[in-house]
Design a protein around this nucleic acid. Structure first.
Lengths: 204, 204
DNA sequence: GCGGTAACTTACTCGGCAGTAAGGTACCGC
DNA sequence: GCGGTACCTTACTGCCGAGTAAGTTACCGC
Protein backbone atom coordinates (compact mmCIF):
# COMPACT_ATOMS: atom_id res chain seq x y z
CA UNK A 1 0.00 0.00 0.00
CA UNK A 2 2.80 2.35 0.89
CA UNK A 3 4.60 0.49 -1.86
CA UNK A 4 2.05 1.56 -4.42
CA UNK A 5 2.18 5.14 -3.24
CA UNK A 6 5.97 5.14 -3.30
CA UNK A 7 5.89 3.89 -6.83
CA UNK A 8 3.46 6.53 -8.04
CA UNK A 9 5.26 9.34 -6.23
CA UNK A 10 8.53 8.14 -7.67
CA UNK A 11 7.27 7.96 -11.23
CA UNK A 12 5.17 11.12 -11.28
CA UNK A 13 6.64 13.36 -8.60
CA UNK A 14 4.69 14.56 -5.61
CA UNK A 15 2.48 17.14 -7.29
CA UNK A 16 1.69 15.15 -10.40
CA UNK A 17 0.73 12.13 -8.36
CA UNK A 18 -2.99 11.95 -7.79
CA UNK A 19 -4.57 10.14 -4.90
CA UNK A 20 -6.89 8.45 -7.40
CA UNK A 21 -3.98 6.92 -9.25
CA UNK A 22 -2.39 5.73 -6.03
CA UNK A 23 -5.67 4.25 -4.88
CA UNK A 24 -6.07 2.54 -8.23
CA UNK A 25 -2.63 1.04 -8.18
CA UNK A 26 -3.10 -0.14 -4.62
CA UNK A 27 -6.41 -1.79 -5.60
CA UNK A 28 -8.19 0.15 -2.95
CA UNK A 29 -10.49 3.13 -2.87
CA UNK A 30 -9.48 6.66 -2.09
CA UNK A 31 -11.28 7.04 1.25
CA UNK A 32 -9.25 4.09 2.50
CA UNK A 33 -6.09 6.05 1.91
CA UNK A 34 -7.57 8.85 3.97
CA UNK A 35 -8.60 6.39 6.67
CA UNK A 36 -5.05 5.13 7.08
CA UNK A 37 -3.16 8.35 6.37
CA UNK A 38 -4.61 11.72 7.13
CA UNK A 39 -3.77 13.42 3.90
CA UNK A 40 -1.66 13.26 0.79
CA UNK A 41 1.15 14.83 2.73
CA UNK A 42 0.81 12.25 5.49
CA UNK A 43 0.87 9.44 2.97
CA UNK A 44 3.97 10.78 1.33
CA UNK A 45 5.64 11.25 4.68
CA UNK A 46 4.93 7.63 5.48
CA UNK A 47 6.58 6.69 2.20
CA UNK A 48 9.61 8.75 3.10
CA UNK A 49 9.87 7.13 6.50
CA UNK A 50 9.67 3.67 5.04
CA UNK A 51 12.26 4.49 2.40
CA UNK A 52 14.52 5.93 5.04
CA UNK A 53 14.24 2.85 7.19
CA UNK A 54 15.21 0.70 4.24
CA UNK A 55 18.19 2.83 3.34
CA UNK A 56 19.47 2.78 6.91
CA UNK A 57 18.96 -0.96 7.11
CA UNK A 58 20.80 -1.47 3.86
CA UNK A 59 23.75 0.63 4.97
CA UNK A 60 23.93 -0.83 8.45
CA UNK A 61 23.80 -4.31 7.02
CA UNK A 62 26.49 -3.54 4.47
CA UNK A 63 29.03 -1.74 6.60
CA UNK A 64 31.46 -3.54 8.87
CA UNK A 65 31.97 -1.24 11.84
CA UNK A 66 35.33 -2.78 12.63
CA UNK A 67 36.94 -2.16 9.26
CA UNK A 68 39.37 0.59 8.37
CA UNK A 69 37.76 3.96 7.60
CA UNK A 70 38.28 3.84 3.87
CA UNK A 71 36.99 0.29 3.76
CA UNK A 72 33.94 1.36 5.72
CA UNK A 73 33.34 4.17 3.29
CA UNK A 74 33.70 1.76 0.42
CA UNK A 75 31.21 -0.65 1.95
CA UNK A 76 28.80 2.18 2.68
CA UNK A 77 29.00 3.46 -0.87
CA UNK A 78 28.46 -0.06 -2.15
CA UNK A 79 25.41 -0.51 0.03
CA UNK A 80 24.18 2.88 -1.07
CA UNK A 81 24.31 2.09 -4.76
CA UNK A 82 22.79 -1.31 -4.17
CA UNK A 83 19.91 0.42 -2.51
CA UNK A 84 19.57 2.94 -5.31
CA UNK A 85 19.70 0.17 -7.87
CA UNK A 86 17.30 -2.26 -6.28
CA UNK A 87 14.86 0.16 -4.74
CA UNK A 88 14.98 3.04 -7.12
CA UNK A 89 11.44 4.09 -6.25
CA UNK A 90 12.27 4.41 -2.59
CA UNK A 91 15.36 6.34 -3.57
CA UNK A 92 13.38 8.76 -5.74
CA UNK A 93 11.06 9.48 -2.84
CA UNK A 94 13.88 9.87 -0.36
CA UNK A 95 16.31 12.17 -2.08
CA UNK A 96 15.55 11.88 -5.75
CA UNK A 97 13.24 13.83 -7.98
CA UNK A 98 9.96 13.03 -6.26
CA UNK A 99 10.01 15.08 -3.10
CA UNK A 100 12.65 17.65 -4.01
CA UNK A 101 11.48 21.20 -3.72
CA UNK A 102 8.14 20.57 -2.10
CA UNK A 103 8.70 22.58 1.03
CA UNK A 104 6.51 20.43 3.22
CA UNK A 105 9.21 17.77 3.02
CA UNK A 106 12.23 19.98 3.15
CA UNK A 107 12.71 19.19 6.81
CA UNK A 108 12.34 15.43 6.33
CA UNK A 109 14.82 15.42 3.50
CA UNK A 110 17.23 17.53 5.48
CA UNK A 111 16.97 15.10 8.35
CA UNK A 112 18.00 12.26 6.10
CA UNK A 113 20.95 14.24 4.82
CA UNK A 114 22.02 15.13 8.32
CA UNK A 115 21.74 11.55 9.50
CA UNK A 116 23.89 10.37 6.63
CA UNK A 117 26.35 13.12 7.35
CA UNK A 118 26.45 12.11 10.99
CA UNK A 119 27.19 8.59 9.88
CA UNK A 120 30.14 9.69 7.81
CA UNK A 121 31.66 12.07 10.29
CA UNK A 122 33.03 9.56 12.82
CA UNK A 123 34.56 7.71 9.89
CA UNK A 124 36.58 10.74 9.00
CA UNK A 125 37.53 11.40 12.58
CA UNK A 126 38.70 7.82 12.91
CA UNK A 127 40.69 8.16 9.73
CA UNK A 128 42.33 11.31 11.02
CA UNK A 129 43.25 9.58 14.24
CA UNK A 130 44.62 6.56 12.39
CA UNK A 131 46.76 8.66 10.08
CA UNK A 132 47.87 10.93 12.87
CA UNK A 133 46.90 14.08 11.03
CA UNK A 134 45.56 17.35 12.33
CA UNK A 135 43.76 18.58 9.26
CA UNK A 136 42.07 21.92 9.60
CA UNK A 137 39.73 21.25 6.70
CA UNK A 138 38.23 18.41 8.64
CA UNK A 139 36.94 20.65 11.33
CA UNK A 140 34.18 21.18 8.83
CA UNK A 141 33.18 17.56 8.57
CA UNK A 142 29.53 18.36 8.28
CA UNK A 143 29.70 20.35 5.05
CA UNK A 144 32.21 17.87 3.69
CA UNK A 145 29.81 15.05 4.40
CA UNK A 146 27.12 17.04 2.66
CA UNK A 147 29.36 17.43 -0.34
CA UNK A 148 29.92 13.70 -0.44
CA UNK A 149 26.22 12.97 -0.14
CA UNK A 150 25.47 15.43 -2.89
CA UNK A 151 28.07 13.78 -5.08
CA UNK A 152 26.49 10.41 -4.37
CA UNK A 153 23.03 11.70 -5.03
CA UNK A 154 23.96 13.35 -8.27
CA UNK A 155 25.92 10.34 -9.44
CA UNK A 156 23.02 8.07 -8.51
CA UNK A 157 20.60 10.17 -10.53
CA UNK A 158 23.04 10.23 -13.42
CA UNK A 159 23.43 6.50 -13.22
CA UNK A 160 19.69 5.86 -13.20
CA UNK A 161 19.36 8.07 -16.27
CA UNK A 162 22.41 6.56 -18.03
CA UNK A 163 22.69 2.93 -17.11
CA UNK A 164 25.39 0.90 -18.74
CA UNK A 165 27.99 1.25 -16.06
CA UNK A 166 27.97 -1.61 -13.59
CA UNK A 167 26.96 -1.07 -10.01
CA UNK A 168 30.47 -1.83 -8.88
CA UNK A 169 31.83 0.55 -11.49
CA UNK A 170 29.81 3.52 -10.39
CA UNK A 171 30.50 2.79 -6.73
CA UNK A 172 34.22 2.66 -7.46
CA UNK A 173 33.92 5.94 -9.30
CA UNK A 174 32.43 7.69 -6.33
CA UNK A 175 34.89 6.09 -3.97
CA UNK A 176 37.80 7.29 -6.04
CA UNK A 177 36.39 10.75 -6.32
CA UNK A 178 35.70 11.00 -2.61
CA UNK A 179 38.83 9.39 -1.30
CA UNK A 180 41.46 10.21 -3.88
CA UNK A 181 40.21 13.46 -5.40
CA UNK A 182 40.98 14.72 -8.87
CA UNK A 183 44.49 15.66 -7.85
CA UNK A 184 45.45 12.04 -7.34
CA UNK A 185 43.28 10.68 -10.11
CA UNK A 186 44.87 12.77 -12.81
CA UNK A 187 48.19 11.52 -11.62
CA UNK A 188 46.99 7.98 -12.14
CA UNK A 189 46.62 7.12 -8.49
CA UNK A 190 43.56 5.03 -7.87
CA UNK A 191 41.95 3.58 -4.82
CA UNK A 192 42.12 -0.15 -5.17
CA UNK A 193 40.78 -1.53 -1.94
CA UNK A 194 37.64 -3.54 -1.80
CA UNK A 195 37.42 -6.86 -3.54
CA UNK A 196 40.75 -8.53 -2.69
CA UNK A 197 42.37 -8.26 0.72
CA UNK A 198 42.73 -4.51 0.52
CA UNK A 199 45.96 -3.10 -0.81
CA UNK A 200 45.62 0.62 -0.28
CA UNK A 201 46.59 3.03 -2.99
CA UNK A 202 48.59 2.17 -6.00
CA UNK A 203 50.29 4.03 -8.71
CA UNK A 204 50.13 2.33 -12.03
CA UNK B 1 9.72 41.16 -14.86
CA UNK B 2 11.54 37.88 -15.22
CA UNK B 3 13.29 39.05 -12.07
CA UNK B 4 10.05 39.17 -10.14
CA UNK B 5 9.05 35.75 -11.41
CA UNK B 6 12.45 34.32 -10.54
CA UNK B 7 12.10 35.65 -7.06
CA UNK B 8 8.66 34.20 -6.48
CA UNK B 9 9.60 30.83 -7.98
CA UNK B 10 12.70 30.77 -5.82
CA UNK B 11 10.87 31.59 -2.61
CA UNK B 12 7.78 29.47 -3.10
CA UNK B 13 8.82 26.72 -5.48
CA UNK B 14 7.24 26.21 -8.86
CA UNK B 15 3.92 24.75 -7.80
CA UNK B 16 3.28 27.04 -4.86
CA UNK B 17 4.02 30.10 -6.96
CA UNK B 18 0.85 31.64 -8.31
CA UNK B 19 0.72 33.78 -11.40
CA UNK B 20 -1.24 36.34 -9.41
CA UNK B 21 1.57 36.75 -6.94
CA UNK B 22 4.13 37.08 -9.69
CA UNK B 23 1.97 39.64 -11.45
CA UNK B 24 1.56 41.53 -8.21
CA UNK B 25 5.24 41.61 -7.47
CA UNK B 26 6.03 42.70 -11.01
CA UNK B 27 3.46 45.54 -10.71
CA UNK B 28 1.68 44.29 -13.75
CA UNK B 29 -1.50 42.40 -14.41
CA UNK B 30 -1.78 38.72 -15.07
CA UNK B 31 -2.86 38.89 -18.73
CA UNK B 32 0.34 40.78 -19.40
CA UNK B 33 2.33 37.81 -18.24
CA UNK B 34 0.37 35.69 -20.66
CA UNK B 35 0.95 38.21 -23.40
CA UNK B 36 4.72 37.98 -23.02
CA UNK B 37 5.04 34.35 -22.04
CA UNK B 38 2.63 31.74 -23.21
CA UNK B 39 2.07 30.02 -19.93
CA UNK B 40 3.36 29.51 -16.45
CA UNK B 41 5.69 26.88 -17.78
CA UNK B 42 6.95 29.24 -20.44
CA UNK B 43 7.56 31.95 -17.91
CA UNK B 44 9.49 29.64 -15.69
CA UNK B 45 11.51 28.38 -18.60
CA UNK B 46 12.41 31.97 -19.41
CA UNK B 47 13.57 32.37 -15.83
CA UNK B 48 15.70 29.27 -16.13
CA UNK B 49 17.25 30.49 -19.34
CA UNK B 50 18.09 33.84 -17.83
CA UNK B 51 19.56 32.25 -14.73
CA UNK B 52 21.59 29.92 -16.89
CA UNK B 53 22.94 32.78 -18.92
CA UNK B 54 24.04 34.55 -15.76
CA UNK B 55 25.72 31.50 -14.35
CA UNK B 56 27.64 30.90 -17.56
CA UNK B 57 28.64 34.54 -17.73
CA UNK B 58 29.83 34.48 -14.14
CA UNK B 59 31.91 31.38 -14.68
CA UNK B 60 33.36 32.49 -17.99
CA UNK B 61 34.27 35.83 -16.49
CA UNK B 62 35.87 34.24 -13.45
CA UNK B 63 37.92 31.52 -15.07
CA UNK B 64 41.26 32.18 -16.72
CA UNK B 65 41.46 29.72 -19.58
CA UNK B 66 45.23 29.85 -19.57
CA UNK B 67 45.78 28.85 -15.96
CA UNK B 68 46.75 25.43 -14.69
CA UNK B 69 43.88 22.96 -14.40
CA UNK B 70 43.63 23.04 -10.65
CA UNK B 71 43.75 26.82 -10.68
CA UNK B 72 41.02 26.88 -13.27
CA UNK B 73 38.92 24.60 -11.16
CA UNK B 74 39.52 26.82 -8.17
CA UNK B 75 38.50 29.91 -10.09
CA UNK B 76 35.43 28.16 -11.43
CA UNK B 77 34.38 27.05 -7.97
CA UNK B 78 34.92 30.57 -6.69
CA UNK B 79 32.79 32.05 -9.45
CA UNK B 80 30.19 29.42 -8.78
CA UNK B 81 29.84 30.26 -5.11
CA UNK B 82 29.87 33.95 -5.86
CA UNK B 83 26.96 33.36 -8.18
CA UNK B 84 25.11 31.28 -5.62
CA UNK B 85 25.73 33.90 -2.97
CA UNK B 86 24.83 36.99 -4.92
CA UNK B 87 22.05 35.60 -7.05
CA UNK B 88 20.58 32.99 -4.80
CA UNK B 89 17.16 33.34 -6.44
CA UNK B 90 18.55 32.55 -9.85
CA UNK B 91 20.41 29.65 -8.31
CA UNK B 92 17.24 28.27 -6.70
CA UNK B 93 15.48 28.34 -10.05
CA UNK B 94 18.40 26.80 -11.89
CA UNK B 95 19.37 23.82 -9.79
CA UNK B 96 18.04 24.55 -6.34
CA UNK B 97 14.76 23.75 -4.72
CA UNK B 98 12.46 25.65 -7.06
CA UNK B 99 12.36 23.56 -10.20
CA UNK B 100 13.56 20.23 -8.85
CA UNK B 101 11.23 17.37 -9.49
CA UNK B 102 8.81 19.14 -11.77
CA UNK B 103 9.20 16.94 -14.78
CA UNK B 104 8.50 19.65 -17.30
CA UNK B 105 11.90 21.09 -16.46
CA UNK B 106 13.81 17.88 -16.02
CA UNK B 107 15.32 18.27 -19.47
CA UNK B 108 16.31 21.91 -18.94
CA UNK B 109 17.97 21.11 -15.65
CA UNK B 110 19.75 18.15 -17.17
CA UNK B 111 21.02 20.37 -19.95
CA UNK B 112 22.58 22.71 -17.42
CA UNK B 113 24.23 19.82 -15.64
CA UNK B 114 25.57 18.45 -18.86
CA UNK B 115 26.91 21.81 -19.94
CA UNK B 116 28.72 22.24 -16.66
CA UNK B 117 30.06 18.73 -16.92
CA UNK B 118 31.27 19.46 -20.44
CA UNK B 119 33.06 22.49 -19.07
CA UNK B 120 34.88 20.48 -16.45
CA UNK B 121 35.85 17.59 -18.64
CA UNK B 122 38.56 19.28 -20.73
CA UNK B 123 40.03 20.55 -17.47
CA UNK B 124 40.54 17.03 -16.28
CA UNK B 125 41.90 15.91 -19.59
CA UNK B 126 44.36 18.79 -19.54
CA UNK B 127 45.36 17.90 -16.02
CA UNK B 128 45.95 14.31 -17.03
CA UNK B 129 48.08 15.43 -19.91
CA UNK B 130 50.04 17.85 -17.74
CA UNK B 131 50.76 15.25 -15.08
CA UNK B 132 51.53 12.59 -17.63
CA UNK B 133 49.11 10.08 -16.16
CA UNK B 134 46.98 7.49 -17.86
CA UNK B 135 44.29 7.12 -15.29
CA UNK B 136 41.59 4.61 -16.11
CA UNK B 137 39.11 6.28 -13.77
CA UNK B 138 39.22 9.37 -15.94
CA UNK B 139 37.82 7.61 -18.93
CA UNK B 140 34.61 8.25 -17.07
CA UNK B 141 34.99 12.00 -16.91
CA UNK B 142 31.33 12.62 -17.43
CA UNK B 143 30.05 10.85 -14.33
CA UNK B 144 32.94 12.30 -12.36
CA UNK B 145 31.97 15.77 -13.45
CA UNK B 146 28.43 15.02 -12.42
CA UNK B 147 29.65 13.94 -9.03
CA UNK B 148 31.51 17.21 -8.65
CA UNK B 149 28.50 19.23 -9.70
CA UNK B 150 26.33 17.33 -7.27
CA UNK B 151 28.81 18.01 -4.52
CA UNK B 152 28.78 21.69 -5.40
CA UNK B 153 25.03 21.81 -5.56
CA UNK B 154 24.56 20.06 -2.26
CA UNK B 155 27.20 22.18 -0.59
CA UNK B 156 25.63 25.33 -2.00
CA UNK B 157 22.22 24.37 -0.64
CA UNK B 158 23.78 23.51 2.70
CA UNK B 159 25.57 26.81 2.74
CA UNK B 160 22.44 28.81 1.97
CA UNK B 161 20.66 27.01 4.80
CA UNK B 162 23.59 27.34 7.22
CA UNK B 163 25.39 30.57 6.57
CA UNK B 164 28.24 31.50 8.82
CA UNK B 165 31.03 30.08 6.73
CA UNK B 166 32.62 32.65 4.46
CA UNK B 167 32.29 32.40 0.70
CA UNK B 168 35.97 31.73 0.39
CA UNK B 169 35.74 29.13 3.12
CA UNK B 170 33.04 27.09 1.48
CA UNK B 171 34.73 27.35 -1.90
CA UNK B 172 37.98 26.11 -0.41
CA UNK B 173 36.09 23.26 1.19
CA UNK B 174 34.74 22.09 -2.12
CA UNK B 175 38.07 22.55 -3.82
CA UNK B 176 39.80 20.45 -1.20
CA UNK B 177 37.17 17.78 -1.39
CA UNK B 178 37.26 17.66 -5.17
CA UNK B 179 40.98 17.91 -5.70
CA UNK B 180 42.49 16.29 -2.64
CA UNK B 181 39.84 13.81 -1.55
CA UNK B 182 39.33 12.49 1.94
CA UNK B 183 42.37 10.28 1.69
CA UNK B 184 44.67 13.27 1.52
CA UNK B 185 42.64 15.45 3.82
CA UNK B 186 42.72 13.03 6.73
CA UNK B 187 46.45 12.93 6.31
CA UNK B 188 46.57 16.66 6.72
CA UNK B 189 47.30 17.46 3.11
CA UNK B 190 45.44 20.51 1.94
CA UNK B 191 45.15 22.30 -1.35
CA UNK B 192 46.59 25.73 -0.80
CA UNK B 193 46.62 27.38 -4.18
CA UNK B 194 44.53 30.41 -4.91
CA UNK B 195 45.14 33.62 -3.07
CA UNK B 196 48.92 33.99 -3.09
CA UNK B 197 51.06 33.03 -6.06
CA UNK B 198 49.95 29.43 -5.99
CA UNK B 199 52.05 26.98 -4.03
CA UNK B 200 50.50 23.62 -4.84
CA UNK B 201 49.91 21.15 -2.09
CA UNK B 202 51.40 21.34 1.32
CA UNK B 203 51.67 19.10 4.27
CA UNK B 204 51.42 20.89 7.55
C1' DG C 1 -33.22 -13.92 10.22
C1' DC C 2 -32.25 -9.57 12.45
C1' DG C 3 -30.10 -5.26 14.79
C1' DG C 4 -25.55 -3.69 14.79
C1' DT C 5 -21.08 -2.65 13.26
C1' DA C 6 -16.80 -2.80 10.66
C1' DA C 7 -14.79 -2.31 6.10
C1' DC C 8 -15.17 -0.39 1.86
C1' DT C 9 -17.17 2.04 -2.39
C1' DT C 10 -19.46 5.22 -5.38
C1' DA C 11 -20.34 9.69 -6.27
C1' DC C 12 -20.18 13.83 -4.89
C1' DT C 13 -18.43 19.03 -3.02
C1' DC C 14 -15.56 22.73 -3.04
C1' DG C 15 -11.46 25.67 -3.45
C1' DG C 16 -7.54 27.23 -5.80
C1' DC C 17 -5.52 28.70 -9.72
C1' DA C 18 -4.19 28.70 -14.78
C1' DG C 19 -5.90 30.81 -18.42
C1' DT C 20 -9.40 34.39 -20.91
C1' DA C 21 -13.15 37.60 -22.47
C1' DA C 22 -14.61 41.96 -22.49
C1' DG C 23 -14.16 46.45 -21.35
C1' DG C 24 -11.51 50.88 -20.28
C1' DT C 25 -7.79 54.65 -21.19
C1' DA C 26 -4.32 57.24 -23.49
C1' DC C 27 -2.58 58.77 -27.58
C1' DC C 28 -2.16 59.17 -32.62
C1' DG C 29 -3.29 61.08 -37.36
C1' DC C 30 -6.45 64.03 -39.49
C1' DG D 1 -12.97 66.18 -31.42
C1' DC D 2 -13.17 61.69 -33.60
C1' DG D 3 -12.30 56.90 -35.51
C1' DG D 4 -8.79 53.80 -34.58
C1' DT D 5 -5.39 51.23 -32.30
C1' DA D 6 -2.04 49.68 -28.91
C1' DC D 7 -1.85 48.54 -24.29
C1' DC D 8 -3.52 47.26 -19.95
C1' DT D 9 -7.11 46.07 -16.28
C1' DT D 10 -10.97 44.06 -13.86
C1' DA D 11 -13.59 40.34 -13.44
C1' DC D 12 -14.74 36.29 -14.92
C1' DT D 13 -14.68 30.70 -16.50
C1' DG D 14 -13.44 26.05 -16.21
C1' DC D 15 -10.92 22.30 -14.65
C1' DC D 16 -8.47 19.38 -11.80
C1' DG D 17 -7.90 17.02 -7.76
C1' DA D 18 -7.90 16.82 -2.51
C1' DG D 19 -10.97 15.63 0.69
C1' DT D 20 -15.94 13.76 2.25
C1' DA D 21 -20.95 12.24 2.82
C1' DA D 22 -23.85 8.80 2.25
C1' DG D 23 -24.82 4.34 0.90
C1' DT D 24 -23.53 -0.86 0.35
C1' DT D 25 -21.90 -5.31 1.53
C1' DA D 26 -20.25 -8.88 4.69
C1' DC D 27 -20.28 -10.71 8.91
C1' DC D 28 -21.16 -11.36 13.89
C1' DG D 29 -23.80 -12.39 18.16
C1' DC D 30 -28.16 -13.90 19.53
Amino acid sequence: MVDAATRVFARRGYHQASMDEIAGRAHISKPMLYAYFDSKEGLCRACIREARRRLYDAINAGVDAGAAPDEQLWLGIGAFFTFVDEQSDAWAVLLGEATAGVGAFARDVDDVRRDLADGIRPLLRAAVAAEGGDPPALEATQPLAHALIGAGQSLADWWLANPGLSRDGVARLLMNFAWMGFGDLVRGEVWEGGTPAAPRRTRR
